[in-house]
Design a protein around this nucleic acid. Structure first.
Lengths: 199, 199, 199, 199
DNA sequence: TATGAATGAGAGTTCATTCAT
DNA sequence: CATGAATGAACTCTCATTCAT
């Protein structure tokens, strides 16, 4: 199976993958018919099975792509050099969130699939929570954050926020990734009370 | 059709409704088979159609129940009249959220359906956002909240948080509705910075 | 599955079973379509799955019926009381073979399936060989048979003969079960040479 | 189409033929996929259609090879001219059967196909029956065989035996072609009764 | 001579839904 | 009020076969 080698084959596979992502994102797994996928990809149904084992298999492939990319984004964005100097509080977190938002924004279908449609969604979000929790803990250790809240709970809250914001603000294009990241971090850091925040 | 009256009929209908809620909550709409619903309700398939027009119809009925109840909870919890003096900031919000959490906790299946499974989930959450936004605006007008953040955005963030917290903290029973409400509101009001809040 | 209880259900199941036997016997497993089975049984395709798990399942059920019945025939026909007196040589074998022939004749479809179409055919025939070998050994011990041939080989030969004779003589109705049994046993006992046999 | 000439072409064709024989012998016609045949032959699917019209066509070609060869074996082995005196009874038959066994043994795949898998199997066996019947009749006319049995029936019995013995004794290599031929003929000629035969 | 890529046709199976009782 | 029995419609997947190179 999947003996394809040449450029044409790879292109067809990609077309199918994109079409599948679109359909799954919009209609969900069950409502998406293989026939619509191949329809959008302008191929016949058997062609689908030339490149994928089953409808489930493509779905999983897409979910894995999302999952892997998301992890990569988190890891890669963690790099910004921690200089000795005064980077304002939580720059790191803000930067990571912005990077994630940028990824989500440029992969809306995968994001919808990975966050909404997949049975693994919970797991994926858990991983996200853990990543964020780690960052929060670090800041906490650095003395930048209050010690009387469970950072795990805060991370959960933040992930919930992120998740929702993606679909109501980011993907519709209402607000930019950067703005969104800034707003959210400021909110979480300083809260809603009058005294101005410094972020 | 066949508007049933007797007690037995009503009971059967209820059994089906509960069974459906359970199945939908656990397996989602498409994966839930009418046969499993009637199986759990210890009735036959035709009996199902004696009480409901279709599989979709029960689902919608359940979603509507959730939607309506949620609205009621919001409205009812809004009542505690603001007495004379200084009730600590955002008591109202905290109370509302706690009431909601209590409702969610006692109706986990409906909650899962209304928040996760339903195509109307977005709408329902929007309504929730609006309710919360209204409250936040009021506090803002009362001078209790910073004016340099969009209360709409904050409401969105808060709803995202609530939504996630329900499934990871509340329903598993890890934290009580009251505690959860307090924590969340404190987080949103005071933020994560060192200086302790008094909420 | 297969919740059928009433008389009508049982009758439908039987109709399907017969139709399946017919179709499998004539066309073999792969060429037989579920659509032809239900066609012959005057039912719709879903009805088929009301009574059987799959096309393979019916097939196996039929094979098992054949296998079991065949064993039963062998066992039951082994009973004829061994009197002290002179029952002519190999009466027992002859009687068993005749009983088998009678069964085959009255269940031609099952026989075709069990002997020709089933992947288990080899096993079934092996069982048959063993049954016959046992009888031959008994006669050998009784001093009725030559000791310089492997009874296992003879049993194999005999089963081959039986198998073929069924389809070319018995089922077409050319020769009766009784006549056939007598001829075969006589042939195997006395051989083809001039000196007359006494059977 | 495309009557190929070159050596490479002929070799590819042969490879396919062998692969097909193997696959058909093991899995039967329907379960054998063209893809497995070309897989075993290390060629691509279109290559298959370069040399054969269809899956059915190869199958028929193989069956025809078997059928023709078998006839040839029978005819050729009939040659050993009956010399002067008393060649022991049924030497001819024994020799023919041995020749056939030798052919079967060296062409196990074709044999399985021609005897088991082909729809023409019945016809092929009928031809075999006729060949053997002719020989038996000749011996009968020569006064070597009893006259009170139908030689047609005996031929049928013998073919059944041969058929089975091939797959349970010959092909597994348990017994040699020569030994097998001797045993069988002795059995059919002298039977199972005590008085020893001299064949 | 050979193949990567593609497809038409069809099979088995599932499921929500209804008929007859 | 309830069910055993049945079905229409649809969907996923397979396979022999061909096109274009």
């Amino acid at each position: 199976m999947a003996r394809e080698k040449g450029a044409k084959g790879k292109e067809s596979r990609l077309r199918l993958l994109h079409a599948a992502a679109r359909q799954f994102a919009v209609h969900g797994f069950h409502t998406t018919k293989v026939s619509s996928i191949v329809g959008e990809a302008k191929l016949s149904q058997p062609a689908f099975y030339l490149y994928f084992e089953s409808k489930e298999a493509v779905f999983e492939e897409l979910v894995d792509m999302f999952r892997t990319s998301l992890q990569a984004v988190i890891n890669d964005s963690q790099l910004p050099q921690q200089e000795s100097g005064q980077h304002s509080i939580l720059d790191q977190l803000c930067h990571t969130i912005q990077s994630m938002f940028e990824y989500f924004y440029s992969h809306p279908d995968l994001t919808r699939i990975g966050f909404y449609q997949s049975p693994d969604a919970d797991e994926i979000k858990m991983e996200l929570v853990q990543g964020i929790e780690k960052m929060l803990r670090m800041e906490q250790r650095n003395g930048n954050l209050s010690t009387d809240m469970s950072m795990e709970l805060v991370a959960e809250c933040l992930v919930g926020t992120i998740e929702r914001i993606i679909f109501t603000q980011l993907l519709p294009g209402t607000v930019s990734a950067e703005q969104l990241a800034i707003h959210i971090v400021r909110l979480y850091v300083s809260g809603l009370t009058r005294k101005q925040s410094k972020v």
